[in-house]
């Protein structure tokens, strides 16, 4: 159909560049993580999990959730669908990256801690709660039909859920002797040069990936919004105008007028 009028993608020049940077970056990170960096003195090669687990956690906690919180606050303040859709996009990415953080953590924990999961660990618990809250947020959005109500209430839920990030971040400090999880290696400067560089690059690439996904996910939300509401009317109007321009003539055709009056 009308490919000349419809842009059949959510991509753009910007996303193409970002996507290319991500693919290139991930390749470099992979080589650094598996070929260039040395194994750890204690963890041996299991330390290579660090280069995906921590960047995923950083993106989840410090990009997706803050984006969700800011967008939700703005959705309440400005009352626009733009911010509401941004919040929904951030929450979905939050689920993806928070989920990956949990899964890679569980896999790393087995050889290093000798356990897949510890229910009593505050860091693990708060991260799992955050993940479930984000899932709940998305489920809630699907359960409310009215856009205005949905935007308002889900923004409040999101703001409450976002405060959990503080708990996740502080858990290893506040409950030092109640958590198995180690403290931040970064803040205390416990990473050697090449490991630090690999980790930093990986985090950067994950962050760019976040922006790439965020742009696409937002545009999907925007399109859904258009289809749900004004999109239907616009599509009809567009069709009337472009596909059947000839019908205008038919409308004023004497035969039709006559038929209509009988």
């Amino acid at each position: 159909m009308s490919e000349s009028t419809n842009v059949a993608t959510t991509g753009s020049r910007t996303t193409q560049i970002l996507g290319f940077v991500v693919l290139l970056g991930l390749s470099v990170v992979f080589v650094l993580a598996f070929v260039v960096t040395e194994p750890d003195a204690v963890q041996q090669d299991a330390v290579r999990m660090f280069y995906i687990h921590v960047p995923a956690a950083i993106v989840a906690l410090y990009l997706t959730v803050p984006a969700l919180a800011v967008a939700s606050a703005m959705a309440l303040y400005k009352k626009t669908r733009w911010w509401d859709i941004t919040a929904a996009a951030a929450a979905e990415l939050g689920v993806v990256f928070c989920g990956l953080t949990l899964v890679t953590g569980v896999i790393w924990g087995r050889p290093i801690w000798n356990t897949w999961w510890e229910w009593g660990d505050v860091r693990l618990l708060t991260t799992l709660v955050l993940f479930l809250m984000l899932l709940g947020y998305l489920a809630y959005r699907r359960s409310v039909v009215d856009p205005g109500t949905r935007a308002r209430r889900s923004a409040v839920i999101a703001l409450v859920a976002s405060t959990n990030v503080l708990l996740v971040n502080r858990s290893v400090i506040w409950w030092q002797n109640r958590t198995l999880h180690q403290k931040s290696s970064l803040i205390e400067g416990r990473l050697e040069d090449m490991k630090l560089f690999t980790f930093a690059l990986s985090t950067l690439v994950f962050a760019v990936m976040f922006f790439w996904m965020m742009i696409h996910r937002f545009r999907i939300g925007w399109l859904e919004h258009k289809i749900e509401t004004v999109g239907v009317d616009a599509a009809i109007a567009e069709r009337r105008a472009s596909a059947h321009a000839g019908l205008d003539e038919a409308i004023s055709h004497p035969a039709l007028e006559k038929e209509g009056s009988t």
Binding site: N6, A8, G11, L223, G231
Partner: peptide, 17 residues
Amino acid sequence: LVRRGRALSTQVPAGQQ
């Protein structure tokens, strides 16, 4: 994401995108 975007894009005129 890319697929969902493509599928939805065809349903919305360019002016609304």
